[in-house]
Computed example of a mutant assay.
Amino acid sequence: MPDITAVPCPPTSAAEGRKDIRKEYVHLGRSEMVLLTSWWQREDGEFSLTARWPAPAVGLGYDQRMLTQTVRQSGLTLAHAAYGAPLSDHTVLNYFDFTVAPGFEVPADAPCDLAVEVTVKNAKTRGSRVISLDMDFRIFRDGRMAARAESEFGWLSTRVYRRLRGEHFEVDWNGWPLPDPVEPRTVGRSAPVDVVLSAGDHPRHWQLRNDVDNAVLYDHPVDHVPGLALMEAAHQAANAALYPVQFEPTTVTSAFERYAEFDRPCWIEAEVLPATPGETSVLVTATQDGETVFRSRLGGPCG
């Protein structure tokens, strides 16, 4: 897991060194969903970015979706702006682990500014094309580290991706059945549109629901369930498995094993694992057609 021990936030760079964030770099259609505000390069493989998060829903210290979106947007921005990954390439998320400082909160009544420091640990290229970046992300609020993440992004050309995806390269966007959501409070959300789980046929078992009105997760048409939607499903499943006990995980590891398709049911299952006193650990697995597509382990204090 990424180490959250004290790491100083580097001093702010001169304003003239900053570059604006292009909406195209973060693969978003809605400008209001772009959380990053600027980026610049400190030295080879070392980058700084700034971000602004909206106030979280009432009752939340922070919104995990803002954290995962910030990491996603940071990785994509650096890939395109600093490493020349073509905008036409298709992104592959291999793994995504993060640790959050216990008790981390953002203001409940106003947007919050954060600093993001990124180290590219390993950049793989084929010829002049970048094919993967393994990155370490440190997110700071008021000079103190709030979260740390590690993730590897990969890229495939359209020709290779089309061959890989076959008949799933194109989908009937929003043409799939949308099952009813579970009660929002049971999964740590406040509105039905934010709920990604529908009741399954036995305890701690749900069907993934892909509601495209959820603008945080489904900004634009894509050919498979977004990785961040699966991570949100894991977060909600862990909360549902422990409800009514409140759970805000501080350590999360996630592995993406196969693509999750929109046109067939994807099942989410949670298992509460043994943990040290005062801590909780939940393993969440997503399966489709009997195959595992995603695994996530979430841990932290509970109660």
Score class of each variant (00 low, 15 high):
6 A>C: 09
23 K>S: 12
27 H>F: 02
30 R>I: 00
33 M>S: 01
33 M>V: 00
35 L>V: 07
40 W>G: 08
41 Q>S: 10
41 Q>A: 11
44 D>K: 05
47 F>H: 09
49 L>P: 00
50 T>D: 14
50 T>Q: 13
51 A>T: 04
52 R>P: 06
53 W>I: 03
54 P>H: 02
55 A>G: 01
60 L>F: 14
62 Y>I: 02
69 Q>Y: 02
80 H>K: 00
82 A>S: 06
88 S>A: 14
88 S>P: 03
95 Y>K: 03
96 F>V: 00
105 E>V: 15
105 E>R: 15
110 A>L: 08
114 L>R: 08
120 V>E: 01
124 K>A: 15
125 T>G: 11
126 R>L: 04
128 S>A: 05
138 R>D: 07
139 I>Y: 07
139 I>H: 05
140 F>G: 01
141 R>K: 14
142 D>I: 03
142 D>L: 09
144 R>F: 04
153 F>W: 12
154 G>V: 06
154 G>H: 04
161 Y>S: 05
161 Y>W: 14
165 R>Y: 13
171 V>L: 04
173 W>C: 09
183 E>K: 00
185 R>C: 06
187 V>Y: 10
188 G>P: 13
197 L>I: 02
203 P>C: 04
204 R>Y: 12
206 W>A: 06
207 Q>D: 10
208 L>P: 11
208 L>W: 12
213 D>R: 15
213 D>F: 13
220 H>G: 01
227 G>E: 02
228 L>E: 06
234 A>S: 14
236 Q>L: 09
244 P>I: 03
246 Q>H: 12
247 F>Y: 09
254 S>C: 14
258 R>L: 13
261 E>M: 05
265 P>K: 01
266 C>E: 00
268 I>L: 08
270 A>T: 09
270 A>Y: 04
271 E>M: 08
273 L>D: 01
276 T>Y: 06
278 G>M: 11
283 L>F: 00
286 A>C: 15
302 C>M: 02
